[in-house]
Design a protein around this nucleic acid. Sequence first.
DNA 1: CAGGACATGTAACAGGTTACATGATTAT
DNA 2: ATAATCATGTAACCTGTTACATGTCCTG
Lengths: 182, 182
Amino acid sequence: MALEHAILVSLAERPGTGYEIGQQFDRSIGYFWSATHQQIYRTLKKLHTDGLVSFESVSQDGRPDKKVYTISDQGRKVLAEWAMSPTRLQPMHSDLGVKLRAAEFGDLAAIIGELKSHRDEHLAQLKVFTGFAADYYPEPDGLTGRKLHQYLVLRGGIRSEQAFVDWCDEVIAGLEGEIADL
Amino acid sequence: MALEHAILVSLAERPGTGYEIGQQFDRSIGYFWSATHQQIYRTLKKLHTDGLVSFESVSQDGRPDKKVYTISDQGRKVLAEWAMSPTRLQPMHSDLGVKLRAAEFGDLAAIIGELKSHRDEHLAQLKVFTGFAADYYPEPDGLTGRKLHQYLVLRGGIRSEQAFVDWCDEVIAGLEGEIADL
DNA sequence: CAGGACATGTAACAGGTTACATGATTAT
DNA sequence: ATAATCATGTAACCTGTTACATGTCCTG
């Protein structure tokens, strides 16, 4: 359900094309929700059918036409209602958790290698997030409104990446101890 | 992809019916992967078609027949190969992240209420996990094999719930500060 | 001239959700 | 009586993934 609302948030902040929204899903929005361009175009079509957005075709010379989407009053209303309605807890889905439980049937060394590579990727992401926080929100105490909300979402990204890296370290140490005992 | 493998892990540890596997998804396996009974039955059918499991129908008096599934050699092979193959990073999907970014278009007080209720539910889950760790793994240093892996997965649950609760506290404090400033 | 950015789409498939359907036993 | 537990399934739908498809402009 949240894909529609993530797109509405983007359009509520400023009108844009599907392509531009897609770029945001690779950057800022991508820190808390990801989507491919196919999902975005499909969802924009549905939002238009439902009357939550309108668009204007803009012809450009030497480039394909683009559709600049704008949120409608109805769209703003739906977004506000959704923002205040209860969200269900998100069910857990941890691929690495399944892998760990499968570890006794596979090769421990290979699984440790996997964990190390995930650890490194999440550590890299963590550094991107902390760098972003330092650059854009050097004094978080005075923030309000949109800037505050963006900062708090970024804090969530930092916390979850940090927790993941720490967990990987604990698991790697535990599994390496197990190998040493053999 | 991991649903198939989560079911194979369960059957590799011991044979069981779809119903029993479903119960594990509400309990132990549910700590890192969730699935409904419809998904489980559908997937068991597919695993059988693919030759990764076999089953034996057991008739019971006064109860419907049950199918007791057993993993096949081919199934064990597929599970071991999967355990050692690379997993892609899981894309981010945070409903509450989207909500926070939508906060400026809704009602702050309602969103704070939502966050508090999520905080409480995750705190309750955290207490279940820490209680479970204390009861079943009082001395984690000596663990090896399956017990160790189960413990490490549980540690991941504890870490992620703790990180979530801490984030909620930070967000609630931030948003309440914003209300106080108005 | 190759590759990336800009710009939008169709089609097929895989995976997850929700509703409906059946039916006996056991506990409150 | 009513609800919970045991036990399995169909069908429709929604969401996400992957592959394919088109075509220009700009940069190296």
